[in-house]
Design a protein around this nucleic acid. Structure first.
Lengths: 341, 341
DNA sequence: AGTGAGAATGTTAGCGATAACACTACCGAA
DNA sequence: TTCGGTAGTGTTATCGCTAACATTCTCACT
């Protein structure tokens, strides 16, 4: 390591000298340029190996003006949904030969979003994926003119930025329709936090189906994705269990809280009340009873968002303001059944 | 945007010209150099604002030889533990004025680890945190001479690299001792995957306590962290429920699977069998019954790992081969009780 | 042998910032 | 007045790489 470079990490010029060629030839070998004699190439590779040379991508990025790095702005990366989405993005980016730099916002506000995006641009990323499930985050994107390609995941249709998302309303329709088909008179709903677009979409789909079927539309019970908020809502519903036969809960964690509350209150699921969740977290299959839920394909979301972003970066596609929608799936398990079963 | 710079994003020289100073003075303003007249500073800031100038950190990193970016190598970032750890690292790094670049390994092997570390070094990161909970990952670090500061999280004590981790054995001791104190004759254990150091540590602590108390040590039942593997083990245990009164499960997800299996088989928890988990995932409190478990402070792990890393980077601390251990906490809930309660 | 095309290699000029040093202006002390 | 110190600013070199152009070498073909 560093032999004959005076302790300092070797640079391209050191390799060039060691191999008896010019630094440009070393660069050509590294970049798979065709016009290099096989013998020269192997001599260079041998020198690289011998010196333990590593290319300085910072210098490279300075002159090529791209870094093959994508920025990701995220929020609440411990929740199953965002974590899975970020993971999907990271894998898709890597498959495409890009790496990712991540900024996790602690709070969603215009200033935080602007700082995060600016930071990533200063770092020289080639494009940015914003995982912006809140309305405020999505709108913070609007008055940002980043000057580089950007794509929003799970964000609203702002008209400024292409969006990739799961069809939340469709998932809610599947869940609600499933319960109506089982014979339930109507379906109650425990919603997610106000500001979240996903929560909105799920309310919308649920309401659509009830409206179309001409059923009574109960008030939405408030929740914040946490099991505790589901528990609280569940206690409330248990108190009026005789008027309720089916609940669509906006995510699986809250559904767990509801199950817990029902268990405590002696409300039997699905005999007295059916429950359907959303997300299909790995735990759902092992709830008691196993949870009927709506699965989101986060891997597909990640792949699509990278596709859209690279489309802008590499083809310089002229502002393709698209909206990619990934369909959800209903997974039927033991928590839903015909009423009074 | 880009006014008078010909469509191209403005560089420092453009700002200098606009403000009627040299580019060096602009640099001084940006770096809070003291010897700049207040009037000059505000003129420069005004020009920066007017042109929409953003500093090019790539060029800056080239000459300063540091990027204020840390690399993180991780694995299985959807699991609650790794996700929380990575989140903790990211927040701690940001508080210290650093940003993070993340590589999520799909599989743990020597080559993958080497590539990830090499990539991050090429990108010019100032240091690397490796979240390496497997034995194979930890050992892959050994024959790596990265030439830059590095710290392992949840990794083994390789002797090459400082390590920050939660005291797994202690957590297991707390769990096992808790069950013995309740009066159980002995405690069964469902373990994590073979290769994981955390799984090993938990087995060690569990065995320690049983040995010290002179109790029979049952065979470890195999698991892989997934609820399903817990379910499988749970079915097995349910078949011999009359010989068993307490089970320590290596993580909460598997404990959920065990609960499910017991529910199906009519084994009552905690009346017939007590269960203790590990991790304290947000769901545990709402299992039926709520799960007694061991809480890990992932935020503290993240903060400590950044402290250790920055210690090496900024003080150039001469290879402080330390081992920081974060203590776990026992959280007692409804799944554990005296035998035959 | 002479020629020209193309392959293989070398030389020079940046990329956009900071470091190091040079210079000017101004101050108070000798 | 003259000098030295320092605050404020400018000039030049440099980080390690690639782009663009220049040069040499090979070889087929006239």
């Amino acid at each position: 390591m560093g032999s004959s470079t005076g302790g300092r990490p070797p640079v391209m010029a050191d390799v060039a000298k060691a191999a008896g060629v010019s630094h440009q030839t070393v660069s050509r070998v590294l970049n798979d340029h065709p016009n290099v004699r096989a013998e020269t190439r192997s001599r260079v590779l041998e020198a690289i190996d011998r010196l333990g040379y590593r290319r300085n991508m910072v210098a490279r990025a300075l002159v090529t003006r791209h870094s093959r790095t994508l920025g990701v702005v995220s929020f609440d990366t411990i929740l199953y949904g965002p974590a899975s989405t970020v993971y999907g993005i990271e894998q898709a980016a890597r498959d495409a030969g890009y790496f990712v730099s991540i900024v996790s916002l602690r709070t969603i506000d215009r200033a935080g979003m602007r700082d995060a995006v600016n930071y990533l641009i200063e770092q020289g990323v080639d494009g940015i994926v914003v995982v912006a499930p809140q309305r405020s985050a999505a709108s913070a994107l609007e008055d940002l003119s980043p000057g580089i390609p950007i794509v929003a995941v799970e964000g609203g249709h702002t008209g400024q930025v292409p969006v990739v998302c799961v069809d939340q309303a469709e998932g809610a329709r599947l869940a609600t329709a499933h319960l109506l088909e089982l014979g339930h008179e109507t379906v109650w709903h425990i919603g997610g936090p106000q500001d979240w677009l996903e929560a909105e979409g799920r309310i919308e789909g649920w309401r659509d189906v009830l409206t179309a079927a001409g059923r009574k539309i109960p008030d939405v019970l408030p929740g914040d994705w946490s099991p505790r908020s589901g528990y609280t809502a569940g206690r409330h519903l248990a108190g009026m269990a005789d008027q309720i036969s089916a609940v669509f809960v906006a995510n699986d964690q809250m559904a767990l809280g509801v199950l817990r509350a029902f268990t405590e209150e002696g409300v039997r699921v699905p005999d007295q009340i059916s429950i359907v969740g959303f997300d299909d977290i790995p735990e759902s299959e092992f709830f008691s009873p196993p949870l009927t839920t709506v699965r989101q394909d986060f891997g597909a979301v990640g792949r699509h968002s990278i596709d859209v972003l690279l489309g802008q970066i590499e083809e310089g596609a002229a502002e393709v303001l698209e909206r990619f929608v990934v369909p959800p799936d209903l997974v039927v398990r033991g928590s839903s059944a015909p009423p009074g079963a």
